[in-house]
Write a protein that binds this DNA or RNA. Structure first.
Lengths: 174, 174
DNA sequence: CGTGAAATCGTGGGCGC
DNA sequence: GCGCCCACGATTTCACG
């Protein structure tokens, strides 16, 4: 890790994400409204020091932004569903991507398996879900869809900073 | 809706979420790091006024919290997958819910369809994914799983405040 | 990375509509 | 009831050692 040359000569040096960074990220992923002072004493640093790290992590793109986590049900969208879309040919067309313009659509992933696209949607009612599905079906490249309605949500959070090391090990004895 | 009596006599009155609230929520869902002053001029209100509304929305639970949105790939977890779990009997057992302790697990939903549980996971490698699946299979109530690996993500955001009214209407002519 | 200072912001009370 | 003005305390954020 001595060679800081070559690529990645952006505004910030190619510094590694160390344990302190991960602790900071862990806190911010759960609650980004803490002050830098409190964050500092949580990780054993002064406020300006954490501030500089956070600024660097933002510039590096590790922190993509800080957002308010809203409650879909209380906003009038109590129905959460995952829609699997099977397309003709390769499904990554502009028309399908334009579904992102709808505020009901929260995620769009290209996926393996017999489905090409996985879309996470949150809507006001089963009627609204039907309306959304009809829009999807209107697209010419859509061959079929399969919808899984979430009956209850037990966990829903943003990406966590921690990694479970044990998952990478000792898979040989199954 | 004149009757403000009975239950819901919490610290905050059962005020409706009006258009201004939705504008505020829309801003905060995209970027919660704006100052109240800027938020105020975005929605045509003074800083203390927005502050009070935000306080109310938090107390009502509409704003569940403000969190940092981290980039999974840059954190060493480039592999996103959805695992559908079919269980014996009703799958909502304590053992399955304890998967929430793993930082790799981001969402757990009970779902309709031929699957009982939908789990969203983000892991470091295919080996780690295998390790996670093996943990799931170790649970006695698990009958089968089906995994969809996300090849690329085109959209991933938190619940939005806006609602598309058109989705609720005129579904009769299909 | 810590210290100190300056600018900005959050936040409660009081008034007016 | 609801929002604006004002003021104080806390926080962010900069320059320096």
């Amino acid at each position: 890790m001595q060679k800081t040359d070559s690529l990645q000569k952006r505004a910030f040096p190619p510094r590694e994400i160390d344990a302190t960074d991960r602790k900071i990220l862990g806190e911010l992923a759960r609650d980004a409204s803490v002050s830098f002072a409190r964050l500092g004493e949580a990780v054993g640093l002064s406020a300006p020091a954490v501030h500089e790290r956070v600024k660097r992590l933002k510039a590096q793109g590790v922190i993509r932004g800080t957002v308010a986590h809203l409650d879909g049900a209380r906003l009038g969208k109590p129905l959460l569903a995952f829609v699997h879309v099977t397309t003709k040919g390769w499904g990554k067309t502009r028309a399908l991507m334009s579904l992102a313009d709808l505020p009901e659509v929260e995620e769009i992933h290209s996926a393996t398996g017999d489905t090409c696209l996985i879309i996470k949607v949150r809507v006001a009612s089963s009627l609204a879900l039907e309306g959304l599905l009809s829009r999807i079906y209107d697209l010419p490249e859509v061959r079929a869809t399969q919808t899984y309605v979430a009956l209850s949500t037990h966990l829903e959070r943003s990406p966590q900073a921690e990694v479970t090391q044990a998952l990478e090990e000792a898979e040989t004895l199954r």
